[in-house]
Design a protein around this nucleic acid. Structure first.
Lengths: 263, 263
DNA sequence: CGACACCTTGAAGAGGTTCAAGAAATGTGG
DNA sequence: CCACATTTCTTGAACCTCTTCAAGGTGTCG
């Protein structure tokens, strides 16, 4: 797998400010083409023939860079495209009328954001980069067009949306019935698992989000998240140095998070 | 709108044990055909020409009756079809390893269940009828086939899945940041709104689920649900007679549930 | 009519929140 | 490169909401 993006796999902690997917590659060195992309396995269907693959290459309109702290799209924005994350890390969050807001997910390379916009042609949440990021912009009309011709792409789209539904079911279970420790354990396991699938260590990670953002996602206050980290640390389950986390006893985490996962 | 299903619209409270969609119609009196169905506007795309409509009629393989308390599909079942609810009322729930379980949604006539099964070709939750029900069985392969030919159907499918994602975002907000009163108020408003869209009263409803099921959905214990109902009742916001609810002060509910809804 | 499921209500208890203060890390500007 | 401002994180103590445990009431169905 010769390609730029996650090449420091396994040693994320080593990069500058703990960069997960280093950005020090030549920008746009290669043509925007899924067939060339090392993330293909993550965001595109498998088993396409050459002709279908070349059609898929038409999917991505442009790439777009999103600076840390800025938004990819806002709640209320007109929906036009889905975005495949190439590098970087995002959160999505919905805001209630009275100002509270809820992080609904954290997304990393190879994942798709923007699905919320399809129903009403407007986005219903904000997608905010937690570190400098780059996304592939895929106009939704083009996706639908191509899906009608390439069955594998059609099915892939359905699977992506279904996966998001199932993920959210898991989060509902977490929010509805788990205690603070269980929530945080499930969260850590889920994150490491996804990072591991991208070639990073399964025992070490650098959180891209604040305690407050974790808390929002898990339905807890930031103080509770902090305290729970401390408790895990005292119990020798994890080592916590700010946002740098090392998992010392993965089995214990698993035991704590008994209920499945939150993907 | 001459058709059997929800014909007592507006007077749900009058039917036997509070039947929402009475079942006293001649079974299979009409051919299984979406073009004939009074729920078409709810579960099928609008603006089809006659030819497309006749294609759509091929979607529904059979109808299936599901007795109260029995499951339409189980967690782990092979996924084959989506189900459009014709009559009756369902809950979907996921179970955690340790036996806790979480209601992830309540579905009524015109809504689609089964989307969770698409990702991995297996269902990941249980769908259980809360009253005798009938569903239209739509083999998913056929849906995909037809979606490739009828653009409106394709887009409709995308919208349905996106809607479910947005709904779950709302539930996450509810579970993550709302207090018991807010949750129950949002729940009641959401239910009445959906019932109203089906021609029922916006001020009166008969709950199809137990306090425990409501609690599971809202991340509360059944006692808390009960107490919260009592408080609403004392405050003159609703009138509660077991499962029969009358909304006396809809504005107050709205005020309590400030954060949007939970659809 | 009796068994069973469901709902209500009270009292005690626990888990998480709130408020507050201070420490650590990060970023900024001189 | 250092000093300062800012953001983020940690920890303590009091408080509050919801849960747990328990008992009794209500409704339903065979």
């Amino acid at each position: 797998m010769p390609d730029p993006a996650p090449k420091t796999a396994g040693r994320p902690a080593a990069s500058p400010r703990g960069g997960l997917a280093p950005l020090d590659m030549k920008p746009h060195a290669i043509k925007v083409a899924c067939s060339n992309c090392n993330l293909r396995e993550l965001c595109m269907p498998l088993g396409l023939n050459a002709q279908e693959m070349s059609r898929i290459d038409e999917l991505v309109d442009t790439r777009r860079k999103v600076k840390r702290g800025t938004t990819l799209f806002h709640d209320g924005d007109k929906f036009t495209s889905l975005y495949a994350i190439r590098t970087g890390f995002f959160k999505t969050c919905v805001a209630s009328n009275d100002g509270r807001d809820q992080v609904t997910g954290f997304q990393m390379a190879g994942e798709i954001v923007g699905l919320d916009g399809i129903v009403n042609d407007r986005h219903t949440c904000n997608a905010i980069a937690l570190e400098d990021a780059e996304v592939c912009v895929m106009p939704f009309e083009r996706i639908e067009e191509l899906s009608r011709e390439v069955g594998a792409l059609q099915h892939h789209m359905h699977r992506i949306m279904s996966r998001e539904i199932v993920r959210e079911n898991g989060v509902m279970l977490l929010l509805g019935s788990m205690r603070a420790e269980e929530r945080l354990a499930a969260f850590l396991l889920n994150l490491t698992q996804r990072l591991h699938a991208r070639g990073f260590s399964a025992r070490e990670l650098v959180l891209r989000m604040t305690r407050e953002e974790i808390g929002s996602y898990l339905g807890l206050k930031l103080e509770t998240v902090s305290r729970t980290f401390s408790r895990f640390s005292e119990d020798g389950i994890v080592e916590v140095r700010q946002r740098h986390i090392r998992i010392l006893d993965s089995a214990a985490l698993q035991r704590i998070a008994t209920p499945p996962a939150c993907q």
